[in-house]
Amino acid sequence: MNRTIFILPFSFLLLGMISCQPSPRCTDRTDVYINIGFYTLKNGIETDTLLTRPVIYGIGREDSVLTSGISSLDKIGLPPAPGQTSCLFVLNYGGQSDTLSFSYTPDLQFLSFECGFIEFYTDMEFTTTNHLIDSSAVTQPLVSNNDEENIRLYIF
């Protein structure tokens, strides 16, 4: 048997193994937001609502307004506080304000070697005061890294 047949592929494979280097790059979405849509309900008919110059900030982060520079919006993604089981936001609009209260269970997930870990939030519950918000509905209690709407807020 001609041993060259066996040895040559061995050498090439060895070189290939040494020269191969992985180049990891994260292509998954790694940010997680509670996605909220604004609606009005009149005579049982639901329509999208555009809020002009709303002010939204986190309680404890009054120095940083999430909506600064935004002229109007009909939906918004609010960041949950990582590692916590709740967070509070204030929605100020048209001279009235409501406190938005979120509670959830943090769930650490391994996303990929490239991206690392991500925190989802399960069993989300939502309560609010009702000065400008008429009512609300949790449509998706799992808060994850997609664009799916989690909460519908109905404005008076």
Partner: peptide, 19 residues
Amino acid sequence: QANNILIPGNYWDDMITAT
């Protein structure tokens, strides 16, 4: 085990945790 896991706060404080 996983260590030094950084979860960005995106608005809130970042979290460092481990499994």
